[in-house]
């Protein structure tokens, strides 16, 4: 029993990363109708940002946790203004191509500059060691990651549910034309939301640096699972993305425990089943195409 609890906890930690990445993808898709293929690359840039700040400028983990996401959010906003924005009115395929190409460029640029080998990054001293959780001991850092991911998700949810900005974003996500007709300037919020989504990916990257291998392909390896998470949760559904993120994390952990050989495809089997049962995903709504 302890075993399974521990594994589920494990899954929650892995799920925290998936949830944060899926959340960013979901808000971007909701607001812009763009599937951001470069999301994994920004996750990778987040981890590299933390590594570079430490080695080049001696900036520690805690500051990196603040600087990197903000910096990447700014990069994201510039990209939105410079490229993404120009293509949103065309066929969605154009933005597929743009973000996909961007992902390849970013990944190869990092590869040619810093090589393919993983970079070292150690845990902050404060989070060394392990914590007694009653039933079992667990590495302090991983507990921190889980708590942090939960806080981020709840905070985003509060902003969306309780603030005026959140209301506008939700309205624009669900009925962009109608929101505009009510005299609300939706366009103003598109760029910050894109930047915010990218910032979340960067944040997940910084969190990953101390516990995962920091290398140029780290985002590309993970992003496929994140896409499955977003599809299972329901495209554009923010709540769905978070719930599915944590759920898939646990499914993967249990898969590794009981059927290691199949754990890789388990997520995709689950995705297929969900799509057969609810073609819009668990929390997605039928979209009326106009």
């Amino acid at each position: 029993m302890v075993d399974v609890t521990q594994q589920l906890f494990n899954g929650l930690v892995g799920g925290g990363f998936l949830a944060m990445l899926a959340l960013g993808l979901a808000v971007i898709f909701g607001m812009l109708r763009v599937v951001n293929f470069a999301h994994g690359a920004f996750y990778m840039l987040g981890a590299f940002g933390a590594y570079l700040l430490l080695t080049e400028a001696g900036v520690n983990f805690w500051l990196a946790l603040l600087i990197v996401p903000v910096g990447l959010a700014v990069v994201g906003m510039v990209l939105e203004r410079a490229f993404v924005h120009r293509l949103t009115r065309l066929d969605p395929l154009y933005n597929f191509l743009l973000t996909f190409g961007l992902a390849l460029i970013l990944q190869d640029a990092v590869k040619s500059q810093y090589g393919t080998q993983s970079k070292p990054y150690s845990r902050p001293a404060l989070l060394d060691g392990s914590l007694n959780l009653g039933l079992f001991e667990y590495p302090r850092y991983q507990v921190f990651v889980l708590v942090f991911a939960l806080v981020v998700c709840v905070a985003v949810w509060l902003v969306l549910a309780r603030t005026r900005v959140g209301m506008i974003i939700r309205a624009a996500t669900e009925r962009p034309e109608l929101t505009r007709a009510l005299g609300i300037d939706v366009g103003r919020w598109v760029t910050p939301v894109f930047g915010f989504g990218i910032g979340l990916a960067g944040l997940a990257g910084v969190l990953a640096a101390p516990m995962r291998a920091v290398h140029p392909a780290m985002g590309a390896d993970l992003i496929i699972t994140v896409f499955a998470v977003v599809v299972i949760g329901g495209l554009g559904s923010i709540f769905g993305a978070v719930v599915a993120g944590f759920a898939i994390g646990m499914v993967q952990a249990l898969g590794n425990l009981y059927v290691p050989a199949a754990s890789q495809i388990l997520v995709f089997i689950l995705m297929a089943v969900v799509l057969l049962w609810r073609p819009t995903g668990l929390f997605g709504r039928e979209e009326v195409l106009t």
Binding site: Q6, N10, G14, Q142, A208, Q252
Partner: peptide, 8 residues
């Protein structure tokens, strides 16, 4: 990227 299940 996540080996914790096996390690635990």
């Amino acid at each position: 990227d996540n080996f914790s299940t096996f390690l635990l």
